[in-house]
Write a protein that binds this DNA or RNA. Structure first.
Lengths: 254, 254
DNA sequence: GAGCATTTGTCCGTATGTATT
DNA sequence: CAATACATACGGACAAATGCT
């Protein structure tokens, strides 16, 4: 492969920031120029390389910051809760309601929630953060029957899963889920504060009450790849196999 | 957001190549400079933007080519066959065996295949292509019981699923699967002919015989994001919902 | 194999624009 | 308003990989 100074610099920086807490600011491009004795382009390429590796995110006018990337494991038996998942990974979750209204369900949502088209349901639009860094953007539909006064609950508790438990007296579990990765549409890209077109996670999910089996919520979320690593599992649990497919012990032959 | 000429150029080119067959070569950077009346950096940035959008892949010394991106849908009821999936998407699949040996199973694989540690099994290392463009790289372990003379079958048929059907007389189905997206280790990155560190799919799968329930194969594959869009589904099928989570009808409020 | 043109990859210096603090 | 930091862009140069003669 082609030699490159910027890759060396990126490797050095990657090792350095490995132990730094998320949100820590890196040296500016100008500082890197002086430190490594290179021009602007090499210094800039190095930091962009780290951005491609999902190690940092850059904000114009502000700086380059160590990113926080948590595992978001989706399987039949895990609670469908953003807040819970983030906290278990050691991050501080936060969710902001951008819009909340009660509206009749469109055909797509209605069929997934197994109610007649036009049935009124809560419609939430929210942004989610990890350690105050934007991580996800989502639409959520919650059947009106599950919890008529959703807004009351959402004022004291950010986790939808928790609100449904405490005020709706239902325990939601994932009954269906579809995950992919894609270039988001421009509006979603803007919501995720992405300045360039990169793949993000698309997670759709239908949750039901564990006891009655009644469909409660349908959600469609976009998640930044540098915030979460979505891991999706189907079938019987992986016996004694490690959960992280990160480490590769196998060596490529020849 | 920041204005940029290169984004405009990228948009123009993206529309132009939308209808071109995969593998078609784009204009060189030099040609784009003259055509759009910009310098090299702007022309180059435009093509790199298309690369980030997974629309093209670039090969040093050769050129920039329209990429082929197929849907790879993983669910309980779909056949675990690369060749079948690619062909259904209109692409031409090809697989090359890099290494084939019979070796005793390590603990991890043995437990997933539910046989004693050290049981001999076939170990395949293969590269897979779509329209002669590298798309995937995988390790596969096949229990020796399922098909003792695997190499004979692999000489006439590239699809492992087909070989097992025709020579092993077993019909494999996915019993467990885990999918994620990650920056690959350097050796895998090289195998995928990636010159920069970008996220790729990691798909692990255990397949069993549909009749006896006996575990047949365990595989770990890496797939380029600009070759396949992995879609994974758990739970009951999505009713009348479209399979592609691409189109976003919802409008972001305010 | 050697040589050559083409194409992308890396890097420099410099300048200006834009967003944040 | 000023300073800082990232974003875009120009022109030039050389390196490395590819493909063809």
């Amino acid at each position: 492969m082609t030699e490159s100074r910027y890759r060396d610099i990126a490797d050095v920086l990657e090792r350095e920031i490995a132990d730094l807490p998320p949100g820590t600011r890196l040296d500016s491009e100008h500082a890197l120029m002086k430190r490594f004795g290179v021009g602007r382009s090499a210094a800039r390429s190095a930091v962009q390389e780290l951005e491609r590796r999902l190690r940092v995110r850059r904000i114009q006018g502000s700086g380059t910051f160590v990113s926080e990337r948590i595992d978001y494991v989706i399987s039949r038996d895990r609670r469908p809760s953003w807040h819970r998942t983030v906290r278990e990974a050691g991050g501080v979750p936060r969710t902001v309601v951008l819009d909340h209204r009660v509206a009749p369900l469109e055909p797509d949502c209605a069929s997934l929630l197994e109610v007649p088209v036009g049935t009124p349901a809560h419609r939430l639009v929210r942004s989610s953060y990890i350690d105050d860094m934007i991580a996800a953007f989502s639409f959520e539909w919650i059947t009106h029957d599950a919890i008529p006064d959703l807004s009351v609950g959402m004022r004291v508790e950010e986790s939808l899963d928790e609100v449904l438990r405490q005020m709706g007296h239902v325990h939601s579990v994932r009954s269906w889920c579809r995950t992919a990765s894609d270039i988001p549409p421009a509006d979603v890209q803007a919501r995720l504060e992405l300045t360039t077109a990169v793949p993000v996670w698309v997670v759709e999910s239908v949750n039901r009450d564990i006891d009655s089996g009644v469909a409660l919520t349908y959600s469609k979320s976009w998640m930044r790849g540098d915030s979460v690593r979505v891991v999706m599992e189907i079938g019987e649990p992986a016996a004694r196999f490690s959960v992280t497919p990160n480490e590769t012990k196998e060596v490529v032959p020849q």
